[in-house]
C-alpha cells in the first residue's frame, strides 16, 4: 500500500500580531489545523534562485480554531528563517507549510490528566495549544503550567495565561521570571517541581518544552522527583 505523501501547501498570512518584543504571531487563513495540540508544522521558504530553507514551528492555536492556524515565531538575530518572519513577512504573503507532524508530544482532552506542563521561553507555544484545546473542550482536567521566562515582558500570551488561570477551573499558572522581581536568579528547581506535583496531583502526563539546556535540566529534576520517565514527553527547540 503506497502511503500518501504529506503535501506542501501554500499558506497565506492572514494576520500578524506582536506577542512580545521578540515574538510575533502569524495566522494562516483557511487552515484550521486538524492537528492534535502539541504538534508542529514544517515551514519552507524559497529564494528566487530556487534555494530553500525549512524549519519546524509548533502550532499555538487549538485544533479546529476558526480564526486559522497560528504560529508564534521568535525572531533570532541572524536566524535564517525566523528573521524573515520577524522583519519581512507581511499580511498577504505566502509561505509553504506541511503537517501536522509529531505523534509523541501531543495531548487531547480525552487523554485526561492531571497534566503538568513546563515551558521555557518560546517553548510554551505547543503547551498553549494544549491549554486552548482544554478550554475548547470545556475540559476540567487538572493542568498546571510552570512557565519560565527572563522577564515578564518576554512571557508569550501572559495576559491570556493569567486570565485562564483566573477563570478556568482546574488550571493553574506558575510564572517564573529568572532575571526580574523576587525570583531573579532562580531557575525551575526541585522545590518548584515538588510544589507543582503536590498541587496538581500525581500526573498522568508531563510535557516539557524549551531550549535544549532547559529541557535537559527540567527532565532530570522530574526523574529525581520520582516522576515515571515514560510519562514525560520532551520537545527541544534547539540552542
Amino acid at each position: 500500500m503506497a502511503a500518501e505523501k504529506m503535501p506542501w501547501r501554500t499558506a497565506r498570512i492572514g494576520a500578524i500580531a506582536p506577542v512580545t518584543p521578540r515574538v510575533k504571531s502569524f495566522r494562516f487563513e483557511g487552515l484550521e489545523g486538524r492537528h492534535r495540540a502539541g504538534q508542529h508544522v514544517e515551514v519552507r521558504l524559497t529564494a528566487p534562485d530556487g534555494y530553500s530553507a525549512q524549519r519546524s514551528y509548533s502550532i499555538a492555536s487549538a485544533p479546529g480554531d476558526a480564526a486559522g492556524l497560528e504560529l508564534m515565531i521568535e525572531g533570532l538575530e541572524e536566524g535564517e528563517v525566523s528573521s524573515y518572519f520577524a522583519g519581512i513577512a507581511e499580511v498577504g504573503d505566502e509561505v509553504e507549510l506541511r503537517g501536522p507532524i509529531g505523534g509523541s508530544f501531543v495531548w487531547s482532552p480525552e487523554d485526561e490528566g492531571p497534566v503538568l506542563l513546563i515551558g521555557g521561553g518560546s517553548g510554551v507555544v505547543p503547551l498553549l495549544s494544549m491549554l486552548r484545546a482544554r478550554f475548547s473542550a470545556r475540559s476540567e482536567t487538572p493542568m498546571l503550567l510552570i512557565y519560565s521566562v527572563r522577564n515578564a515582558a518576554e512571557a508569550i500570551a501572559r495576559e491570556e495565561l493569567q486570565i485562564r488561570a483566573r477563570d478556568e477551573p482546574g488550571f493553574d499558572l506558575t510564572l517564573l521570571t529568572t532575571r526580574e522581581g523576587a525570583t531573579a536568579g532562580r531557575r525551575v528547581d526541585r522545590v518548584m517541581i515538588e510544589t507543582a506535583l503536590d498541587h496538581v496531583g500525581k500526573p498522568r502526563h508531563v510535557f516539557v518544552c524549551g531550549s535544549n539546556g532547559f529541557v535537559g535540566s527540567v527532565s532530570d529534576l522530574l526523574v529525581d522527583a520520582s516522576v515515571k520517565p515514560s510519562i514525560i514527553r520532551t520537545e527541544r527547540f534547539g540552542g
Partner: peptide, 25 residues
C-alpha cells in the same frame, strides 16, 4: 513557490553538495 523578500543564506558549494535536501549545517 518563491517567497517574497526571502533570499536565505545558501551554504557554500562545498557544503551544499554534502547536505541532503532540506538540511542545514
Amino acid at each position: 513557490m518563491v517567497t517574497r523578500g526571502f533570499s536565505g543564506r545558501p551554504p557554500a558549494a562545498e557544503i551544499a553538495e554534502r547536505l541532503p535536501p532540506g538540511q542545514y549545517l
